[in-house]
Design a protein around this nucleic acid. Structure first.
Lengths: 360, 360
DNA sequence: CTGTTAGCGCCTTCAG
DNA sequence: CTGAAGGCGCTAACAG
């Protein structure tokens, strides 16, 4: 019914082995033979059976990309950049397919997807975004990644701390068989510190913080940077100035309302990301406060729409496209892993209209 | 080395077939036996070999999603919604994996991905976004989709016209073997017509149009709606009032500059989508024109950030999440296909601050 | 309910 | 440079 390698071989008057060789181009074949085979492929509209070759060759051309939420441009940009590099991978193994897995930030789903990808014998996996800080999950994740590595899958962390990278699940495992992890981290801490430092320089002292979801590494890193800036200037930082929330507009809105309820004298707010920052702005406006005249607001990530918000958002730019592209090259083995397996990508302060000197 | 079904069977003291049966849960197995098998699976950390089972069962659990650009929230939302439904597919075949393919709007890449997905024996494919209007590509695409359908892959068009749906590549093909295509279309034409109608009702007569990329179905549909509204009111529509461009901010900016160069008396501009509309706004601002006092601007799609732009964008809301979710259910066979295989989703006019009555 | 028996379609030594 | 043969790991009839 469906045409197979054997059909092509018969049509071309050669053996199946020869057809396989011209198709994979990994072995010398006479030009004439190759031509006949290729013609037969065309005529029969033959399409390789991926599962069959994956089984025989013990390798597939799937690459998994784990993201919190593909609808969020932060991850969309990252995933798109990875994907672009995958399709450019004409080298060893040719075109790879990107399997995008939405974890929704759930550690359980993260593990589930890791297993699913291992089941597919994925050639590589890129984990993006923040990780859970829960030790049990960190351990389970490290074990899962070790199993993948052990199976020959390349693992790249992108925009994640390296906590997993160092995990050594079992001694006694032959090191050669384990591809080492590679990590691309963002300088969240430094970026946050510069951002809050910028607000302090503008005269702000009562700075509210809409932190990201609790228990996640990215949240912790950015919060640490924020606090470091405050501490460096001897500014007190009572716990009531920090509210945790998700990375969406509604959370930003609610968090801002809560922060104002706790302290109506705030003159600035740093948000978990740009989307939340827009929610903060909306909440302020709804309460009759102007941005930045009454309250300065800052975001994080510098997503494309941030420059078009009104006022344009002061934020911290993360090199998402570069990070994704690099992760894509690393996971396909087209780029050498950085020394130590870890590279930190810069976070650049972008000063725009949503922050200004404190007026009162 | 790597643990197989046979290992699990040995450990549990049963045959490989039995292990397969408990794992797939598609055949009765005694509770006790099942327990022993499951324990063995745990102990051995056994993970099914996807390619092997796909080969034997002649089916995989991969679903392809073709998008123009996953970094664009329009597609991110769509893809995310599809994906969410896939992981909820615990029914027949269980969890499906989403393979996201960025075509960049290139018909060639579209065909390439279709072949790649056919090679993987994908369980289904969802094609999103606009299609090329070129007849040759339309034909090639129809042929490709027919091949997929013929191989048992479910095909769903989402936010696409049905031109492909009717294609009959070869007579003589047994109809039963071809799963029929299903299409979910947006009412682009109606939405555009209402949008331009809204501007006309506000007194605008010289309305510039930043249309999407030329030669694409979505562009054509929206432009047709725009023109229908103008025609309905007897407003002339010289060609110079329309400029084509991509769906990004820069294109919107450039197009606006060009439109103003051609006619500095414009009082309104409708853009290809929200992102381009923000570019239009930026261009107007840079030339000292206020939105909406001097020029009204409208977008399309109603992406999340549109409400936070300044001024908030008047636009047309497309039910992206609903469409994606439905496509996900259709492609996994969890929802009946609509009568005739085609459903049209409504496009709702959202009036906000970026459009106002024409101030002469 | 469970074991046995054949392949699924391709890759990969090993000869020639 | 090409062909023949075996097996990758699993599923799907058949028997029992």
């Amino acid at each position: 019914m469906t045409v197979t390698l054997a059909d092509v071989a018969a049509r071309a008057g050669v053996s199946a082995a020869t057809v396989s060789r011209v198709l994979n181009g990994n072995y010398p074949v006479a030009a004439g033979t190759r031509g006949r085979v290729l013609r037969a492929v065309e005529e029969l509209e033959y399409v390789v059976n991926g599962p069959a070759s994956a089984l025989a060759a013990a390798s597939s051309d799937l690459v998994g990309i784990l993201v919190n939420d593909i609808a969020d441009p932060f991850f969309g940009i990252l995933a798109g950049a990875v994907q672009t590099e995958l399709s450019g991978a004409s080298g060893p193994g040719g075109e790879k397919l990107a399997v995008v897995c939405n974890t929704g930030g759930s550690p359980e789903r993260e593990l589930t997807y890791l297993t699913l990808l291992q089941r597919q014998r994925a050639a590589g996996v890129v984990l993006t975004g923040s990780a859970s800080e829960d030790p049990a999950h960190a351990r389970a994740l490290a074990a899962g990644l070790a199993r993948l590595s052990g199976a020959g899958t390349r693992v790249v962390l992108c925009g994640r701390p390296v906590q997993e990278a160092g995990a050594e699940p079992e001694s006694g495992v032959e090191p050669e068989s384990r591809a080492p992890l590679t990590a691309l981290a963002f300088d969240n801490r430094g970026g946050a510190q510069r951002l809050t430092g910028h607000l302090i320089a503008l005269g702000h002292r009562r700075i509210g913080c809409v932190a990201g979801p609790a228990g996640r590494t990215t949240t912790a890193e950015r919060l640490a940077g924020h606090r470091a800036a405050l501490a460096a200037h001897g500014i007190e930082d009572p716990p009531r100035r920090v509210v945790h929330g998700a990375y969406d507009r509604g959370s930003g809105y609610d968090a801002a309302v809560e922060l104002l309820r706790r302290d109506s004298e705030l003159t600035a707010v740093v948000a978990a990301n740009d989307t939340a920052a827009l929610g903060v702005c909306a909440a302020l406006r709804d309460r009759g406060l102007r941005v930045p005249e009454d309250v300065s607001v800052a975001g994080f990530d510098d997503l494309p729409f941030s420059a078009d918000a009104a006022p344009a958002l002061t934020t911290v730019r993360l090199p998402l496209a570069e990070a994704g592209a690099r992760a894509g090259r690393l996971v396909t083995g087209r780029e050498e892993r950085p020394p130590g397996g870890l590279a930190t990508l810069p976070a650049e302060l972008m000063v725009r209209g949503s922050t200004s000197v404190r007026y009162p």
